[in-house]
Simulated assay, not measured.
Amino acid sequence: MAAMTTALGLMSGTSMDGIDVAALRTDGETIVERGPSLFVPYDDTFRARIEAALQTAKVIEQRDQRPHDLAELERDLTQRHAEAVHAFRAKFPDWQPELIGFHGQTVLHRPAEGLTVQIGDGALLAQRTGTPVVYNMRAADMVAGGQGAPLVPAYHVALAKSLPETFRRTPTVFVNIGGISNVTYVPASGDPVAFDSGPGNQLIDQWMQREGGLAFDADGVAAAKGSVHQAIVEAYLQLPFFARPAPKSLDRGDFDLSGVQGLNLNDGARTLAALAAEAVFAARKQMPETPKLWILCGGGRKNPHISGDLQRLAEADGGEVVAAEEVGLDGDATEAEAWAYLAVRSTRGLPLTWPTTTGCDRPVTGGVLAQP
């Protein structure tokens, strides 16, 4: 039996709102003891710097290029992650990590070109925290012909085996609704099937910022006053991405607000929430069997319109939709937990991805280990 490792996962996702920190004790396979988690928000100024970096990064042609001010941003982002680790250690002294899984911040993702860029200096983080760090976990998959995303499915498989008995129904689908949504189909046996399914919170957030001066639609309040323009939803769903076979992944810039141009604030928010739900549900067309259980993770599960729309669609299809908390999980911490789990798998040389999750030509491990 493999030894257990206490690992800390650090995730800064497409919503760019801050750092999720989560602890696990795991063997990197089937045993997962979930620990505490912490969220460290970015201030508005730093978040704006990351948003600006998405434009700067468009000229990158090699993974290690850091044009203009990206090198400075990378140092500052790494320092914020180090501070988040210190804050976690101070708050949860019983969960001192032996290993850190570091995602960094994605600023460019072009799978068709075999290029994905996450800023974040793993060696510097190891030095600042005094702890070994596994980072750069997507690159090996892309070398093997994969999309480099999603990587969380390996963890979803372990979670599916640990669900309470009443929720062990296969096939189970884990849905992560972040800026971009992704799904992991876990069958009764065999490898998982996973892919990005479409826009999650990203377009709603952009819409609220542009039209309402707000960071996001908290609790779906704006959408509650609006109506769904179904023709607009259908137009988005006709975009080429949805017809492409899985595995497939998205960059933040692959969808925009042109479809909702001219709507009022509330109708736009409600229509984009409907799109987020329908894009997830449309993913079932690329799953081998109809899912019996959909488990919602990520910030988008808190939008009652996204979760409610998906619930209605799934129920009509013979499925059930539940929030992560209903099955004993933490929907805010799942991705960060996954990065802790993947770090342990990386040190053991176990696969992080499979042909059915990213399109790689064989099961692939990955990651670079930096010692303090």
Rank of each mutant, 00 (worst) to 15 (best):
A273F: 13
A215V: 06
A215W: 03
A218M: 13
V233G: 08
L214R: 13
G226H: 10
R244S: 14
A243V: 11
L237E: 09
S258T: 13
R270C: 07
V221C: 05
V260T: 14
A231Y: 01
L239K: 11
L203M: 14
F242D: 08
Y236G: 05
D205W: 12
V228S: 03
D256L: 01
Q209W: 03
L257H: 02
D219F: 09
D251E: 12
N264V: 00
A218N: 09
Q206T: 05
Q206S: 04
P247Q: 12
D205M: 09
L263Y: 00
D251N: 15
S258P: 11
A223S: 11
Q230F: 04
G213F: 11
Q202K: 13
K225P: 04
A218D: 15
H229R: 15
L250C: 05
G212I: 03
L272I: 08
Y236V: 14
T271C: 10
P245M: 06
V260D: 04
G253Y: 07
L272W: 00
G259M: 00
A273Q: 08
E211C: 10
Y236W: 13
A273H: 12
D256M: 02
V260K: 12
R270S: 03
F242M: 03
S227R: 11
A235H: 12
L257N: 03
I232W: 10
I204A: 15
L214P: 03
S258C: 02
P245R: 15
D254W: 14
D267C: 06
